[in-house]
């Protein structure tokens, strides 16, 4: 379905997909489970919403297999807002992705928050017209996803915990490795590609650009305006906020505050101002208390 030309028009090109990701930069993408929440997110200045049945915090609490959302639920959100709508498919579940594309979502998140459907392969994202975002914990993972056709990379973090420590680790790791690639000579780049299990041409491109060839966003555990600004200062071009907004005391106010902190991430006085009187943040989970089977960041290959 990708690259179908209709006379002189071509849909689903790399430029159209990555270009869509560029439009979302310097913004906040918010998880929503109802049309009402989607409206609150749009009113607060979200650049896009992620439509899902349960936010990660509830997936953790309720357990079981987490899958693509009900198409009725996604349709309800698509028709309630005018900003872009994203939705999640399970890792490797290309049929869920086909369904989401047919529903007209604007971006698909091949997400470790849902239960993986394939333990060896991710979706061949080149085969789709719709762009994909994928999570990564390190540069090798990021480059493998880009080689598979991802138009955006985000840190995985540890979704649904309200704890930003894993997202910090992933952002530092990815950015650090990008810097290191810039210092390598040709022979060393071949070695790096092998080490990273990523195609040489993508590795070389990153070494030359000094950045990923697609936007790098952050996700996983962001709960406060300061968390969002931290991710921005660590090099994230935009921020995904999952459970952090609608699991808090005053979602509309917190959403608005996180949007402002994302824009003025380098101005502590703005972050201080918007952090006042936000009500209760989501409770959060210490990662030491989390069993290995409950760690989502390890999902993906």
């Amino acid at each position: 379905m990708a690259n179908t030309a209709e006379n002189d028009k071509t849909v689903g090109t790399t430029r159209v997909k990555r270009g869509m990701a560029e439009q979302l930069k310097n913004g906040v993408i918010m998880d929503v489970v109802t049309p009402e929440q989607a409206k609150i997110a749009e009113d607060a200045g979200a650049v896009a919403v992620m439509a899902l049945e349960r936010v990660p915090a509830d997936i953790r609490k309720q357990g079981g297999v987490a899958r693509m959302s009900d198409p009725d639920m996604i349709d309800g959100i698509v028709s309630s807002v005018s900003i872009p709508v994203m939705a999640k498919a399970r890792i490797g579940h290309f049929v869920e992705a086909q369904v989401l594309q047919s529903l007209g979502v604007d971006f698909i998140d091949e997400s470790e928050v849902l239960t993986p459907a394939d333990e060896a392969h991710h979706i061949d994202k080149w085969a789709f017209t719709v762009p994909f975002v994928c999570g990564a914990t390190n540069i090798g993972e990021a480059l493998r996803r880009i080689a598979e056709g991802a138009a955006m990379i985000r840190s995985k973090g540890e979704a649904g915990t309200g704890n930003v420590v894993e997202a910090t680790r992933h952002m530092r790791s990815i950015r650090g490795e990008i810097k290191r690639l810039g210092t390598l000579d040709e022979a060393e780049l071949f070695g790096a590609a092998k080490e990273m299990r990523a195609p040489y041409d993508v590795v070389k491109e990153v070494a030359e650009l000094g950045k990923l060839p697609v936007p790098l966003f952050s996700a996983g555990g962001v709960a406060t305006p300061a968390d969002a600004a931290l991710m921005r200062q660590l090099g994230a071009e935009s921020v995904f906020v999952g459970s952090g907004i609608f699991k808090s005391g005053d979602p509309a106010k917190r959403a608005d505050a996180i949007v402002q902190a994302t824009l003025h991430y380098d101005d502590p006085s703005v972050i201080a101002k918007v952090s006042r009187g936000l009500g209760e943040a989501m409770v959060g989970i210490n990662l030491d208390d989390l069993e290995d089977s409950q760690r989502y960041a390890g999902r993906g290959w």
Binding site: K9, T10, V11, G12, T13, Q101, V105
Partner: peptide
Amino acid sequence: GRQTESFEGA
């Protein structure tokens, strides 16, 4: 239209 209809052309 939506993103799946986004395109490039001359």
